[in-house]
Design a protein around this nucleic acid. Structure first.
Length: 216
DNA sequence: AACTCGGGGCA
DNA sequence: TGCCCAGAGTT
């Protein structure tokens, strides 16, 4: 079986496992998704949503949020991890959106990554979920699960993104991203993957039987 | 490549 | 309690 056939088989099973997999951040505009995604780094979506419900009620637009100083922003987002870095980045990003992009969220990866606090993963999440532009975001779950399933061999997120996007049709990137994450959170855990109850195990080169441990 | 930020989740 | 994260920036 070719690699692309193997990949398609994995994706088909993931689709039946997680037919409703989606971005769990709450937002109503591209700007709000951008902010929520910056806030979500190393944090849970539930925590971010709890916080953004307050934040977006008071400051729903870039114009409103740009009025806040870094200190005021810190106060607003206190409670999420890394909040000092994120407050600084969000303040700078709001200013840049107004001065360079007419208050709109840019729609290219290169422009998005110019924004403070926006890296490779955040840029792709915004492209995919705010604009429906095909993009495959690689975070630690996607990196780990893709490698275990034999969909990629690279060790860096950039390498894995290149491998997957070459392997799958662009129309599948967004769903594949969410399904790999959901699988990583529910079954394919970093430490103790539950291979015994994983429907992908028969097709997984890394599947372990009960008792064995993963090395990675 | 390694380090830092930081509260939450999970064993 | 201790360890690790649905990352990005700096050194």
């Amino acid at each position: 079986m070719s690699l692309s056939q193997h990949a398609q088989q994995i994706c088909d099973i993931l689709a039946t496992l997680y037919p409703q997999a989606h971005c769990e951040l709450e937002f109503s505009t591209p700007f709000q998704l951008l902010i929520a995604t910056i806030l979500s780094a190393q944090s849970t979506d539930a925590q971010v949503n709890k916080l953004t419900r307050r934040l977006f009620a008071k400051y729903p637009t870039v114009e409103a949020m740009a009025e806040l100083s870094v200190e005021e922003l810190e106060e607003q987002i206190k409670g999420v991890g890394l909040f000092r870095n994120k407050a600084k980045h969000i303040a700078a990003t709001c200013q840049l959106l107004l001065s360079e992009y007419g208050g709109e969220v840019p729609k290219t990866r290169e422009e998005l990554m110019q924004l403070p606090g926006v890296g490779r993963k955040t840029a792709n999440v915004v492209l995919a979920n705010a604009f429906g532009i095909p993009a495959f975001a690689v975070d630690t779950h996607v990196l780990r699960v893709s490698k275990r399933l034999g969909l990629a061999q690279g060790s860096t997120p950039d390498q894995v993104e290149a491998e997957i996007t070459a392997l799958l049709p662009a129309g599948q990137w967004i769903d594949a991203h969410h399904r790999l994450i959901w699988h990583g959170r529910r079954i394919c855990h970093a430490r103790n993957p539950r291979c015994g109850e994983c429907p992908l195990a028969p097709h997984c080169p890394s599947a372990k039987t009960e008792g064995e441990e993963h090395d990675e």
